[in-house]
């Protein structure tokens, strides 16, 4: 007989008591959390809740001071960023973090080429790497930038840059895509377009996002985690979270401040 547990969706990412101290300040305090494969999981919370630090711990840009992180049951706590990328964790950053002097296509190509091959890439020139070029073009079309392939990132609008960020992250063929406040500083139109792009991602990409724009969160997410003062407050469906009195107490009290 097949163990019914095996048919359950697996935890793609598991955090066990993960903490990050800055001196005596606990930015993230013993957070335990499971992200199921295939979900659209949002982390919300007032400013200073530790969401961004938590993301850094997951992506590996900051080391955790305690606890462990498991990707597919494998301990990745001590792995550096580039190794985690290799295992399928991709991040878009809160502040647009692109290669400004390069074109949109080149931005995506960097990630595509890295994913496609080992080695330093000294052999064949880019223009003869047709598979990589085709994939980069396809990704740009996918995130809604079909006419901007040859535009340097510096000349893209803010919203377009966020879309490009998503394309770069997708190019690493992630299993887990971390979106750090993707809608920050975007116009409603731009936010709507980005929401569409994320919603249209294939099911095998698990999405974990931090977002202040609760409309976007409730439109996209099927699981919501609330953090408060570095701690994990609650996790549940959007409806459960919306109804939770302790969430309202922690969150709504500071809503005016955050937005």
């Amino acid at each position: 007989m097949i163990d019914p547990d095996l048919l359950e969706p697996l935890d793609l990412l598991e955090l066990r008591g993960v903490s990050r101290d800055f001196g005596s300040f606990k930015a993230v305090d013993a957070v335990s959390l499971a992200v199921r494969a295939g979900t659209r999981h949002a982390v919300i919370g007032p400013n200073g809740a530790g969401k961004s630090t938590l993301f850094s711990l997951i992506s590996g840009t900051l080391p955790a001071t305690a606890g462990s992180l498991l990707l597919d049951g494998r301990d990745v706590t001590r792995l550096p960023v580039n190794r985690r990328v290799g295992l399928g964790i991709a991040t878009t950053f809160q502040h647009s973090s692109l290669f400004m002097r390069e074109t949109a296509l080149e931005n995506v190509l960097l990630a595509v080429v890295r994913r496609a091959g080992s080695g330093l890439g000294i052999g064949r020139p880019l223009r003869s790497r047709r598979t990589a070029l085709a994939r980069a073009h396809a990704l740009l079309d996918q995130v809604g930038l079909p006419s901007r392939h040859d535009t340097p990132a510096a000349e893209l609008s803010h919203g377009e840059r966020r879309q490009l960020e998503v394309a770069v992250a997708l190019a690493t063929e992630p299993r887990l895509l971390l979106l750090d406040e993707p809608a920050a500083g975007m116009s409603p139109v731009e936010t709507a377009r980005l929401t569409e792009v994320v919603a249209a991602l294939p099911g095998e990409v698990t999405v974990l996002l931090i977002e202040h724009d609760l409309d976007m969160v409730f439109e996209l997410a099927n699981v919501v985690t609330v953090m408060h003062l570095g701690r994990h407050l609650t996790t549940g469906s959007p409806a459960e979270v919306r109804a939770s009195p302790e969430v309202q107490a922690a969150y709504l009290g500071t809503m005016e401040v955050t937005r």
Binding site: V81, V85, A90, S97, F99, E102, L110, A111, R114, T172
Partner: peptide
């Protein structure tokens, strides 16, 4: 291209696995 990426944004290069 990767070297240009390092020149422009080294942190990001690491984040995409370089």
């Amino acid at each position: 291209l990767a070297l240009r990426g390092i020149r422009d944004n080294e942190d990001r290069m690491r984040a995409i696995g370089y």
